[in-house]
């Protein structure tokens, strides 16, 4: 079992994608199937950017075992009021500034859903959000 930790700073787009890139490198070193890596990277990147775009700060913990990868993203921030609505493609509350950068299409959470085996979202408005994503590594 291997565990990776990352701190994510809300509002700072400069380093967005760093955690995803480190996890991608690690999975490559572990010789994980490249198709699986691609899916994991899509999901993790979208979760990482959502902390940057929509929360104040967060933590990412990635646990890799021979069978599974579990990615837990916890943030402090405004939280998600209606998770079902947030999961709909096209739904976004992104600011104008974030949209000008090309974020805010409302495709991040749907991208996550499509690329992992299990996704759990817990959120409390005004407190924060926790995403748990799980992908099997041993059935490639």
């Amino acid at each position: 079992m291997m565990t990776l930790h990352f701190h994510i700073e809300g509002g700072n787009f400069t380093n967005a994608g760093f955690a995803s890139s480190q996890v991608k490198k690690t999975l490559k070193q572990l010789n994980i199937d490249s198709g699986l890596i691609k899916k994991i990277v899509i999901a993790l990147y979208e979760g990482e950017v959502n902390i940057v775009a929509h929360a104040l700060k967060g933590e990412i913990v990635v646990e890799i075992s021979p069978e599974t990868i579990t990615m837990i993203l916890t943030d402090e921030g405004k939280g998600i009021d209606n998770i079902e609505l947030a999961m709909k493609e096209g739904f976004s509350t992104a600011s104008q500034k974030v949209r000008e950068m090309g974020f805010g299409a409302g495709m991040g959470l749907p991208n996550i859903k499509k690329n992992v085996d299990q996704l759990f979202i817990e959120s409390t408005v005004g407190v924060g959000t926790k995403l748990t994503m799980i992908k099997q590594l041993d059935h490639a």
């Binding site: 967005a16 994608g17 990147y45 950017v49 950068m101 090309g102 991040g108």
Partner: peptide, 30 residues
């Protein structure tokens, strides 16, 4: 749209865009 590229572009493609900030490089690399 960055999430569109993240979700749908494929390895070895050229990304044609008018976005030119740091996150474009991050996505192209990922």
């Amino acid at each position: 749209l960055l999430s569109d590229v993240m979700g749908h572009a494929r390895e070895d493609q050229v990304w044609i865009t008018l976005q030119s900030h740091l996150n474009v490089v991050a996505i192209a690399s990922l």
